[in-house]
Design a protein around this nucleic acid. Sequence first.
DNA 1: AAAAAAGTGTGACCGAAGTCACACTTGTAA
DNA 2: TTACAAGTGTGACTTCGGTCACACTTTTTT
Lengths: 187, 187
Amino acid sequence: MERLRQHIEHITSLTNEEFEYIQTHFTKKRVLKNQYLLHEGDDVKNEFVVLSGLYKVFFLDEQGREYIIQFAKENWWMSDYQAFFQEKKATVFIECIEAGEVLVSTLETREKLSAELHKMEHFYRVKLTNGYVALQERIKLLLSSTPQERYEAFVKLYPDLLQGIPKKLIAEYLGVSRETLSRLYSR
Amino acid sequence: MERLRQHIEHITSLTNEEFEYIQTHFTKKRVLKNQYLLHEGDDVKNEFVVLSGLYKVFFLDEQGREYIIQFAKENWWMSDYQAFFQEKKATVFIECIEAGEVLVSTLETREKLSAELHKMEHFYRVKLTNGYVALQERIKLLLSSTPQERYEAFVKLYPDLLQGIPKKLIAEYLGVSRETLSRLYSR
DNA sequence: AAAAAAGTGTGACCGAAGTCACACTTGTAA
DNA sequence: TTACAAGTGTGACTTCGGTCACACTTTTTT
């Protein structure tokens, strides 16, 4: 839980009492490799804060092709935010790539803490601001770049992921075929 | 200004005094067709709330090709949010397609109102949440869909834009060539 | 240790979308 | 009202990336 505190205090400082209270709204959960935290069609009751391990957020098209929206590592938040905020059924999957731990929270928690503690509303706003900017960057990249440039941008964003995971997953994140990606660095 | 009030109260209710105060942080500005509200390389001092008219937020790649990030109409907010929040130079342009009016605000305003009024921090958080979800949807679409599907999704999102603006702009939003877009509905 | 499964590189082929060129229409300005 | 610019559709050609196939390697399982 100390991790969560540091994470929040990176944005806004808290008293011990405040953190004590906030803490009660999060529960720790161990996650094993290949375990699903969220499955298409589920009610999206939770959002997750990654403490350790590696996870992928992805979806499938009609032909069953897989597209990765996000890799999540330490201190990243993840959910099917569309469904989470709008209380719809999940359209994405969250699967564990490397075992680790996450904190589990709910929409009620987010709204309640935001309403009760101005500081927490601030925290969530800042997090969302950063997330918004990151997504916009991804859109610009998807719109304008060649596979080559996307790959280079990926390397910058996730330098540590390059060795750890199958290239296939990187291809699914970039939106190119495995073969095309392979040809990018073999020439 | 009444428009701004309705817009905010759609999310959180305000007293007259509160709105009086908030109001002083926004100034109205008339915008003419083809006028730029923001130019690549500028310091991004402002964000804009659209009262009327139509605007495009776009950027250029090295070859000078144009990509539209967002069309903005009534009640949409726009800026180069990346640069705005991080106080960097603009990498995008905002240009007026149809004359109208906007409200002009600043980062200081956003932060100040958020800090002073919990309600406003809430307002900004909710706006950001919606924006985040919309961007994520766009990413999913860009990753997985054919030009055909993108076009159909566009029609749903901006049904009113179809007749008003040149098809070239739609193509730039979808990330396909003008010719490809043209062939989508001529067969 | 053997067998099965997953990951990776590479060639051959194909097809969807980009580019270029041009004709025709519509809108705008002199 | 004429002239010029902008917008639009369509054909010909090209090209980049996808798909399929297969060999080889590495990892996992039994």
